[in-house]
């Protein structure tokens, strides 16, 4: 793959320490986010997608630490920084936060301090990273609030978060994350806590801003429908590993990993209303974190399980189309047979 990436995660491993024992919660994750593109990370709750997103800004909580791999980021001076090597409480990472990589969180209700005004909390970001005086900062803040669709921003800037609705708070959060014009915006399930109509508005807003500012976006979600609307590239995570990734069209039209197929089958379709088609859930449930299976983590629930292969080793990556890779023994075997046929 070429060198035109903005953020590249290589072989990232993250562990959780519990009472002197250590468990991997993210294993060998590789991601490449290109400038100006929307990259979606999809997975169930507990699959490690939020952990990956937090690790990029070194915001992991107590007991959770990066134990291997690299997070390479090209900063605005075209220098490549390995974020993993930075001190999580040091100046270099603080200079990247919000200035070059902004972040939006899942819960708009609790992402703002309830006792400081919205304006105070957004202007603070301006003062940290941009060289503007108080008046200019306030002006910029009002402009940004207007841009994210907050009605009457002159008034809103002096209001407290509890005077805002959930949707407004998420808009304000977007303003706070984008005020310094970062090159990458990480959005961790930004619409999950909102009702459906507001979800659609927020998604449109993010898409518009992303186009306007030519920003890259790492979008974390468990909602395939949302991904289809917004993403260019997508990676599917299961138990801390990426099982399939590629351009969003390829993945949605031609899913190869049994887990991806299962996820897509589990989406309700409008056309099915009134028919007697039931949703197809994925059989079984996610194994316990502490009993991570040896081979493919999905083996125990997989309909295409191959004995003595799937439960032994984690599958190698198989590239089935340009940039579309799958980690599955089944796919690997098919591909080998095809190659064999071609070679003959």
């Amino acid at each position: 793959m070429s060198d035109d990436y903005l953020l590249k995660v290589e072989d990232l491993t993250i562990s959780l320490d519990v009472d002197n024992a250590s468990f991997s919660i993210v294993e060998g994750v590789n991601l490449t986010i290109k400038a100006g593109r929307v990259f979606a990370l999809v997975g169930e709750s507990g699959s490690g997608k939020t952990i990956v997103s937090l690790s990029i800004l070194r915001l992991l909580g107590k007991g959770v630490s990066i134990t291997g791999g690299k997070i390479l980021f090209k900063d605005d001076q075209a220098q490549t920084i390995d974020i993993v090597k930075l001190n999580s409480k040091g100046k270099p990472i603080q200079a990247i936060r919000a200035a070059q990589i902004g972040m939006i969180f899942q819960e708009p209700m609790s992402s703002f301090s309830p006792v400081h005004t919205i304006g105070n909390q957004i202007e603070e970001v301006i003062h940290l990273h941009l060289d503007l005086d108080k008046k200019q900062a306030r002006q910029k803040c009002i402009e940004m609030l207007g841009k994210v669709g907050i009605v009457n921003p002159e008034r809103a800037i002096d209001q407290y978060p509890f005077e805002f609705s959930g949707g407004m708070r998420q808009r304000a959060m977007i303003a706070r994350a984008m005020i310094c014009n970062p090159k990458l915006l990480i959005a961790d399930e930004p619409t999950t806590a909102l009702d459906v109509t507001i979800q659609a508005q927020i998604l449109k807003l993010m898409k518009d801003l992303q186009n306007e500012l030519n920003m890259a976006n790492l979008f974390i979600s468990h909602n395939i429908g949302v991904i289809a609307q917004i993403a260019d590239d997508v990676a599917i995570m299961y138990m801390g590993k990426i099982v399939e990734q590629g351009p969003v069209r390829d993945i949605l039209r031609n899913p190869r990993h049994p887990y991806t197929k299962g996820l897509l089958r589990a989406i309700p379709h409008l056309a099915d209303i009134g028919r007697s088609r039931r949703l197809e859930p994925i059989a079984g449930s996610v194994p316990n974190l502490y009993e991570r299976p040896n081979g493919c983590p999905f083996a125990a629930r997989c309909s295409e399980f191959i004995e003595n292969i799937c439960d032994r080793d984690f599958p190698k990556s198989t590239e089935i189309a340009t940039d579309h890779t799958v980690f599955c023994h089944h796919v690997e075997r098919d591909q080998n047979q095809q190659n064999l046929v071609v070679n003959i």
């Binding site: 937090l54 800004l57 915001l59 909580g61 409480k89 100046k91 603080q94 200079a95 990247i96 936060r97 919000a98 200035a99 902004g102 972040m103 969180f105 899942q106 819960e107 609790s110 992402s111 703002f112 301090s113 309830p114 006792v115 400081h116 909390q121 603070e124 970001v125 940290l128 990273h129 959060m173 706070r176 994350a177």
Partner: peptide, 27 residues
């Protein structure tokens, strides 16, 4: 300290000391 707004405040690039005094301590 475990609340979301603390992580969100950290994500703005505020230094740890200032962040703790301004947000969680205040609350």
């Amino acid at each position: 300290l475990n609340k979301m707004y603390v992580t969100a405040a950290r994500a703005t690039g505020l230094s740890e000391f200032k962040m703790i005094l301004k947000y969680p301590v205040r609350l």
